[in-house]
Design a protein around this nucleic acid. Sequence first.
RNA 1: GGCCCGUUGGAGAAGUGGCUUAACUCACCAGCCUUUCACGCUGGCAUUCAGGGGUUCGAAUCCCCUACGGGUCACCA
Length: 492
Amino acid sequence: MSKQVRVRFAPSPTGHLHIGGARSALFNYLFARHHGGDFIVRIEDTDRKRNVEEAEAKLIESLRWFGTEWDESIDKDGGVGPYRSMDRLDIYKEYIDKLVEEGKAYHCYCTEEELNAEREAMKARCETPRYSGKCRHLAPEQIEAYKAEGRTSSIRFRVPENREYIVHDHIRGEVKFESNGIGDFVIARPDGIPTYNFAVVIDDYLMKITHVIRGEEHLSNTPRQLMIYEAFGFEAPEFAHVALILNPDGKKMSKRDESLIQFVEQYRDLGYLPEALMNFLALLGWSPEEEREIFTREELIDKFSLSRVSKSPAIFDIHKLNWMNNHYIKQAPVERIAELCIPHMQKAGQLPQKLNEDQYEWAKQVVALYQEQLQYAAEITGLASLFFENEVQYDEEAKAVLSDEQVPDVMKAFHEELVTLKEYTPDTIKEALKAVQKVTGQKGKKLFMPVRVATTGLTHGRDLNQTLFLLGRDKVVSRVQNVINNYEKIAK
RNA sequence: GGCCCGUUGGAGAAGUGGCUUAACUCACCAGCCUUUCACGCUGGCAUUCAGGGGUUCGAAUCCCCUACGGGUCACCA
């Protein structure tokens, strides 16, 4: 590999950045950086019907957030652009014309209806549905007749007969395909816009791509691309086809699949950290030699190699992502996590749209309280809801705790301590609870659980002193008072 | 249906002929720690590598068949 390594991620702007796409981008990025090469992002938008408004911008935005920095793209010219297929039409035309002139491609006048009918008939006969080659050798008169009819023509590639094409795949080894199993395929539509299989070859060649790392769904298409490389006498790049990511059922992901969050943007909005998603996705289909899971970007770059990419598909496990994201959240400065959490709390009506300094400080402390157990930022609203409820609801488990016989004594003693406290801080709260222990003789679970449940409604939670502090004396007093007043009702 | 790819525990996976009575991580379960809670810690979780045949002194690792899953066969990428 003496050549400068150049790889690319070439999505079509048909929607948001998918986690599968993100992983492809990541593998390309890691490979490029590992070899000191270039990573290019190219937009394959030759299907105008499917192009979605704004999709390109969203795609780029997601990719940028994800962190796979590119060296060349639509916003960064490296001298081999443009980097958007639809801006390269003149280039494709030149190559298509050449192929037609040399007889390696030909005009096909079949209509879509004819082709569909042909395909259906073949399927009905249990044959491989592929183009019959009807227009391979049209007589000039026939062409004139079609033209007179007003028919337009697409351009088909003349697939060589009795040939074997071998894909040398870095992940799968040698994969062989018989050309006879492949029908003449369209390389350009009637309006001159090329199809993917053609454009991708021209683009990769002209952009000096050395390694094509992409999803396994492209493996079967590779022989077609190999034929085009051959037709032009271009040297083909090296290939690596990565197995797909499956949903939790072990099935292929479909757009409407709700068993899994599929788009990078959604993970960002839920409050996942990009470095966590990157670390997780890197380990989905690739494994390092070391026995550990947490890797910085630099480490991933240093260790990544195609030879350790798995051949078999992987199931996306949200539990592991959550664990990993939690790991990164714990390490992050609280300010960063607060920045992610506060908007969720505002959206939930827990915090005002504009925070003054005190409000921000308080919110930050609430976030800090939960930082250790947060799996993603959006969870904060559920975890912190106890701070915003006016009335505490007690479920069966909570009621069971409050039904203990020592509870009224503990509550009364705690109430007494609370109202006489001079200062209300985590430390003084701690002292107050110690005083309650002395007065009532209750300690441990018998002491803390009733206080926790009475004030938060929950049997699980974070550090009690800090929780009570953040809750504020008024709320705590009134909740304790409520339990005292309604002990009989709650305990029954 | 043809062609192609794959199949190690619930999940990610290591393992490329003997070091494997199958590493590591997540999840799950049990216990410990903590005057509460959480974090954390410790232990348990595949006698077996989809199934069946071979090859070999010896196979998760090599070969064949079957089953299952997936990709592709578009004027989608």
